[in-house]
Design a protein around this nucleic acid. Structure first.
Lengths: 244, 244
DNA sequence: CGGAGGATTGAGAATCTTCAATAAACGTGG
DNA sequence: CCACGTTTATTGAAGATTCTCAATCCTCCG
């Protein structure tokens, strides 16, 4: 029993762009069903060529890439509203995997109908492109972090980013606090650090009273100081984020 | 005196998707003119909000991001056929800059007419999205490199990638060799390494007879060995790359 | 209660950085 | 065509950040 787009709880959030009744009913017809994935399980395998792509309805996850010897890079974290699996829809093969970090629910779309969307709903097509460009922007930011920032700056940047995404997407109600189902290893793999050094860096941030991170919860205690450390600039996405 | 799309030399290359006469004449009307930029000069400034976006016609460049204290990350290298400045067209502001490494020529498009393209030419809109997704894929690959690969592997990966792009885009005729206008500092900023260490890494690759890099030219002498080092997998982009 | 996965800690080792100096390459004007 | 200034490449050495190893602790769960 999957949720109809017309009464999708996500769409009620102000962070997302509102659609007209007509658009909603098209999206509803576009939606094939829902996928529910347990925490820790893969949503999409790297290298796969799935006939579906998805919008995250509930829960958080991550995109990651692996090397043959087990080294892993987390490419981005995923929150409600994110479009996932577009690569296989457009390019034929996923070059990163997606896994659930908490239990997730995703709306399922058929890649075959993507073309129909482009032809019949240019506004939705524009939205897809908007999301792709935004994802590219995030990866650019991550690349700058991993390539040029020191460990403490990277972790600061990541935590701020994750909290912002969590707030915008409604993953958390609180402005400064969120449920944090990620492991330190996940942070490490996103920051390009070892888990040991990530742990020590987190300790340092705690000692400075910048953050709290325990019992599966993250709180940013000194947003200004942490933001300065990360040299973080709020991206200005004036209109609501599109939601497929 | 700018080139008409109908007789664009780039389009003749097999690597690019062919358009019909109708499509070509639309693209030609879409094209506002040409921009010529000298080597070393900026094409787009980070943080700018330009009314234009571009397709690279000739020459090579790079996308980069900077931090306040001067640290810089090269986010990607740019070759003919690449779409540049789409971020400002879609999202309102460039989060990376673009600079010319050799003299460049670019076709100029108006961001205002991007919407018209989406509405009236869904196939071209699809192409734009394809290009955005491909760019995202490249950044993911770069992120994996910088985050998890050792220096030698990173440089190997970069050189292979650059040569492949150069070949596909027609920047070079040769399969194993290219004109190489980039500085070691640029490689370093792309790999997330210091220029000193980049230099020493290049020496090591030379000593192993893997590459030749001098006199502004790069040659890959042992593609198999270098590819294995980089754990490089050829991306399969079966149909031609779209060219706006 | 026992086990498993994750967090934490300490210590030694490695990769990579920074500093600083020299050499080579390149472009420009005479 | 040469001298000269500027940029880029190269090299050595010392130092720092970050990594690996390995042990311990903790928490959660069946």
């Amino acid at each position: 029993m999957s949720v109809h787009c017309q009464k999708c709880p996500l769409r009620r959030r102000p962070a997302f762009k509102q659609l007209t009744e007509d658009e909603l009913s098209f999206m509803d017809s576009f939606k094939m069903g829902e996928l529910h994935v347990d925490a820790g399980a893969p949503v999409i395998l790297e290298g796969s060529n799935s006939p579906h792509f998805y919008t995250v309805l509930r829960g958080a996850g991550m995109r990651d890439k692996g090397l043959a010897d087990g080294r892993r890079q987390v490419v981005n974290f995923i929150f409600p509203g994110d479009l996932v699996g577009l690569q296989s829809g457009l390019l034929g093969e996923m070059k990163h995997g997606v896994e659930a970090v908490s239990d997730m629910a995703l709306c399922v779309f058929s890649r075959e109908r993507l073309w129909e969307l482009f032809r019949q709903h240019p506004e939705r097509a524009y939205d897809v492109t908007w999301l792709a460009a935004t994802e590219e922007r995030s990866l650019g930011e991550a690349l700058l972090s991993v390539g040029r920032r020191a460990a403490k700056e990277r972790i600061a940047q990541l935590l701020i980013y994750m909290l912002r995404r969590a707030v915008e997407s409604g993953f958390t109600k609180d402005e400064a606090r969120m449920r944090f189902p990620f492991r330190q290893q996940d942070l490490a793999d996103a920051a390009g650090l070892s888990s040991v050094h990530t742990n020590k860096t987190l300790q340092a941030l705690r000692r400075q009273g910048m953050i709290r991170l325990d019992a599966g919860e993250l709180e940013i205690l000194k947003p200004a100081a942490l933001g300065e450390l990360a040299e973080y600039s709020e991206p200005v996405d004036p209109p609501g984020r599109p939601l497929l």
